[in-house]
């Protein structure tokens, strides 16, 4: 579990857009600190300067005019509008609206109460058909094994292997309740709603092992629902993919308390 913490205590940046989100966080917190300190100084000055002194009556108006006193607010508003137009909408659209181009590594994530089922298409690149009626303890994703494309599919529990540098598209779906697919170092977080297939993409940029956890209350085992995300070089990833293929006859059972 590698990860060191930068200023503001943020975990390491391990994905393509992590840096742009961190920039926003650092910029806003710097602005917040500045605003708080400036107002704090002014506030303290007022308290000391205008505390009750015998014989000194209060002045009815502070001489700053009505709307004139709101100049600092207009500055803050201008800053916010700038943030929205220049930062928030572009970055949000890049992350959540646009789809990654070119070679994309697609993985289906099927969340269930207190476990992550990770469904790889396998070498043939096609996902086998899944049917909720077939969901069982040994077949958590409900894979229809009669479908030829399903033969080489790989289903893992609480563990995701990713090649570094390759944009990965996760199709998030849930069997039962609302979960939240969240990987802090990737700055990736997206609620998973049953009855919906929500696409989310990320480009891992740093080799290492990170933690995948659920960020939306999904029952009493909510805090135990976590797994590992192993980002490895292309070579190691292909080796792992081959090693998994033959042993894929029966998919790994999903157990909730993962040991690692």
């Amino acid at each position: 579990m590698s990860g060191y913490y930068r200023w503001l205590g943020l975990p390491v940046e391990a994905s393509g857009y992590a840096h742009s989100i961190d920039d926003g966080l650092l910029l806003i917190h710097a602005a917040m600190l500045a605003i708080f300190v400036l107002w704090g100084i002014f506030f303290a000055y007022l308290l000391i300067r205008y505390r009750r002194k015998d014989g000194v009556p209060a002045k009815r108006d502070s001489g700053h005019g009505g709307w004139g006193s709101l100049v600092p607010d207009f500055i803050v508003m201008a800053f916010e509008i700038g943030l929205i137009v220049l930062y928030a909408i572009p970055v949000w659209s890049r992350i959540k609206v646009d789809e990654p181009m070119g070679k994309v590594n697609t993985i289906d994530i099927v969340a269930q109460q207190f476990a992550w089922n990770v469904h790889y298409p396998g070498p043939d690149g096609k996902f086998g058909k899944t049917d909720p009626k077939l969901v069982s303890f040994t077949n958590p994703v409900g894979l229809d094994l009669k479908d030829p494309a399903a033969k080489d599919d790989i289903v893992l529990a609480n563990e995701i292997h990713l090649p570094v540098g390759v944009p990965t598209l996760f199709n998030l779906s849930s069997l039962d309740v609302i979960h939240d697919f969240s990987i802090a170092p990737f700055r990736l977080k997206q609620d998973i709603v049953p009855g919906m297939m929500i696409p989310v993409w990320v480009t891992p940029t740093r080799i290492g092992t990170y933690e995948l956890f659920c960020a939306q209350l999904c029952g009493f085992g909510h805090s135990l629902m976590h797994g590992r995300v192993i980002v490895e070089s292309e070579k190691d990833y292909q080796a792992w993919l081959k090693s998994m293929a033959p042993a894929q006859a029966a998919s790994q059972p999903a157990n909730s308390a993962n040991s690692f």
Partner: peptide
Amino acid sequence: LPLGLTPTDIYLHD
């Protein structure tokens, strides 16, 4: 503020 802005909310939500 960071919670109201969409990109930073991705990280800070929940």
